[in-house]
């Protein structure tokens, strides 16, 4: 057998110990590096641009005396007065109710997928979680409208908004909890079974607590995601310029709804309130985001 002849590339008489890579390859490599770094810069530009816009245009409103403590009740469109506490209340209470409903269901569904789910039903459930994650918020809102308001005859209210938000929150909570539960080592479960502790108690007492902070992180991210939702409030509740504490009846403001309704205010004060509300909303969302990422620092599961 003749051993390899290989590529009889022309070689200079005295070749250097290491062969150079060709210029065109080096150029390609450098061009790729430049393009890829450029892509990252392009991605950062809109983020900075949006944040700078919101902060610079929204800051004046936030420093006015009434902003955090009054509503817009009795304020004329052109007046630079009043505040948004009625909308902050609406945003928070709608998110709170949605969380109270979505979290237990989401955690239980995740437990089902990780601890009990086998076979076709589990596969279908997992598939549908992905589908639910992709359902547009306007469709979720329409569904609540069709099922509860049109067919069951419920009135428009903040509670209806919360129901739509539940649909949007569920997949986020389920996926995050699922991921956390899967990180819990089987060793922990097995040692509990070996002590004769029944499976459900093992899950409640050992598995869930181990995954707790990770789960809370997921819930906070889900809350941050739904608080800015505008489509459900447009469809499911009327806007009110005054405070309404009752989530089950009457119109109720929220920050997105306030921004949307001020869009039709032609006065300059409308812009002032829109950007003020935008900045307020971003601040509230950031509190949840940062809280979530701080928490996730502590959510590492002991190996």
């Amino acid at each position: 057998m003749s051993t390899v002849t290989g590529a009889d590339l022309e070689r200079p008489a005295s070749e250097p110990p290491t062969r150079r890579i060709s210029l065109s390859r080096r150029i390609k490599d450098n061009v790729a590096t430049v393009l890829v770094s450029l892509a990252f810069l392009i991605a950062v530009v809109p983020l900075v641009w949006v944040l700078v816009t919101v902060v610079s245009r929204g800051a004046p409103a936030l420093f006015s005396a009434d902003w955090w403590g009054t509503s817009l009740s009795g304020i004329l469109p052109e007046e630079y007065e009043g505040g948004v506490y009625h909308a902050i209340y609406g945003t928070l209470i709608q998110a709170l109710i949605a969380t109270v409903i979505a979290v237990p269901i989401g955690i239980l569904a995740a437990i089902y997928l990780v601890e009990y789910g086998r076979g076709a039903l589990a596969r279908t459930t997992s598939f549908m979680v992905d589908i639910l994650a992709g359902v547009p918020s306007i469709v979720a809102a329409l569904f609540v409208f069709a099922a509860f308001i049109s067919i069951l005859g419920a009135p428009q209210s903040a509670f209806m908004v919360s129901l739509a938000l539940v649909l949007l929150m569920l997949p986020v909570v389920i996926r995050n909890t699922e991921e956390m539960l899967r990180l819990v080592p089987d060793r922990l479960r097995e040692s509990a079974y070996a002590l004769g502790i029944p499976k459900w108690k093992t899950i409640l007492r050992i598995v869930l607590p181990t995954a707790f902070s990770g789960t809370v992180t997921g819930v906070m991210l889900a809350i941050a995601r739904i608080m800015g939702e505008t489509a459900p409030v447009l469809v499911l509740v009327g806007y009110s310029r005054a405070i309404n504490y009752d989530p089950f009846q009457g119109n109720m403001a929220s920050l997105p709804l306030l921004m949307y309704s001020e869009l039709s205010n032609p006065e300059a004060a409308g812009q002032y309130r829109i950007w003020g509300a935008a900045l307020t909303l971003i601040i509230i969302i950031m509190i949840f985001q940062v809280g979530a990422s701080l928490l996730s620092r502590f959510s590492a599961i002991p190996k």
Binding site: G106, A122, M128
Partner: peptide
């Protein structure tokens, strides 16, 4: 009971998608 609740929540997700389609 626990098993029922967990599987029920899973079924609820599947049902939610079906109901969205149905009611619309």
């Amino acid at each position: 009971v626990f098993r029922f609740l967990a599987s029920g929540s899973g079924v609820l997700v599947v049902a939610a998608i079906a109901l969205i389609g149905l009611f619309l």
